[in-house]
Amino acid sequence: MMSSSKKVVELFYDVVSPYTWLAFEVLCRYRSVWNIELKFKPAYLGGVMHGSGNRPPGLVPNKFLYMSTDLTRLSGYFGVPLSPPSNPFEAMFEKGSLNAMRFVTAVAEREGDVQVERVTRELWKRIWSTDQDITQPASLTEAGLKAGLSADQVEELLTLAKSQPIKDKLKSVTNEALQHKAFGFPCIVCHVNGKAEVFFGSDRFELMAHCIGEKWSGPQPDKPTAKM
């Protein structure tokens, strides 16, 4: 018999990763379907890649070419408005996401999960849907305002994001991901019977459901699955 207590599911993520956006939206949709408590864990992908010795896909030309085609197909399947930016390599690896993830961490510390979800989604939309900057304060401000924060709140959060406690918090959560042997994002950790079950990628939900004793009904559980 399945336990009535909710299983904790942690999502370690960085908005620079488009595949993590897919996982983020799926987990948000399944919060009311599966018996889980979803915890957002904003971290820094650059730190995880460096700490694990992994190579970004942009450094492997064939992987990078495949990614654009793959994301277009996944957008329709997952129902997420993915549209690669005009210069994905610059967006992902040259500009980076450190400022953005410090901002998200500040939101997490000050405003809580509801606003973290909204702000995070707006940042993903900027970089992976409308080809906009996520590094400059003006860009972070716009994302915060669209997420429902007031101008005063955003200003406070931008200041907080530059503080040492927030920098330390982001580093701590990034190290936590590395302790789970993360080598990229999304890194999803399901706590089952006292054990941490770690899943990488946005294509492991069927296996994850089996692991936590739930049913996988596709990336959009509110829509009926088409019959063959």
Rank of each mutant, 00 (worst) to 15 (best):
V107F: 07
V107M: 07
A108P: 00
A108H: 05
E109L: 10
E109D: 11
R110M: 08
R110G: 00
R110C: 08
R110N: 09
R110E: 11
E111K: 15
E111V: 06
E111W: 03
G112Q: 14
G112N: 15
G112M: 13
D113I: 12
V114R: 14
V114K: 14
V116W: 04
V116H: 03
V116L: 15
R118N: 09
R118K: 12
R118Y: 10
V119K: 06
T120L: 13
T120G: 13
T120K: 06
R121Y: 12
E122P: 01
E122A: 15
E122G: 04
E122F: 07
E122S: 10
E122Q: 14
L123C: 10
L123Q: 05
W124D: 06
W124Q: 07
K125V: 07
K125P: 01
I127H: 04
I127E: 04
I127T: 06
W128T: 11
W128I: 09
S129A: 15
S129G: 13
S129I: 07
D131C: 13
Q132I: 05
Q132M: 14
Q132R: 12
D133W: 13
I134M: 12
I134F: 08
I134D: 04
I134A: 08
T135P: 05
T135V: 11
T135W: 15
T135F: 12
Q136A: 11
Q136I: 08
P137F: 09
P137Y: 08
A138K: 14
S139V: 08
L140I: 09
L140H: 10
T141A: 13
T141I: 06
E142A: 14
G144S: 14
G144I: 04
L145K: 14
L145Q: 10
A147M: 11
A147P: 03
G148N: 11
G148Q: 07
G148D: 09
L149P: 02
S150D: 08
S150F: 10
A151S: 13
A151N: 14
A151Q: 13
D152Q: 13
D152A: 15
D152N: 14
D152E: 15
Q153K: 11
Q153F: 07
Q153R: 11
V154F: 03
V154A: 03
V154Q: 02
E155M: 08
E155C: 07
E156T: 05
E156H: 06
E156Y: 00
L157G: 01
L157E: 01
L160K: 07
L160F: 12
L160S: 09
L160A: 14
L160M: 14
K162L: 12
K162C: 14
K162P: 01
S163D: 10
Q164F: 08
Q164A: 10
I166A: 03
I166W: 01
K167S: 10
K169R: 06
K169D: 02
K169H: 05
K169I: 00
L170H: 04
K171C: 01
K171M: 05
K171R: 08
K171D: 07
K171Y: 03
S172A: 13
V173Y: 00
V173H: 00
V173M: 03
T174W: 02
A177W: 01
L178V: 01
L178D: 02
Q179C: 11
Q179M: 13
Q179H: 13
F183G: 03
F183W: 14
G184M: 08
F185Q: 04
I188L: 03
V189G: 01
V189L: 03
V189P: 00
C190K: 03
V192A: 02
V192W: 06
V192E: 05
V192P: 01
N193T: 03
G194A: 01
K195L: 06
A196F: 02
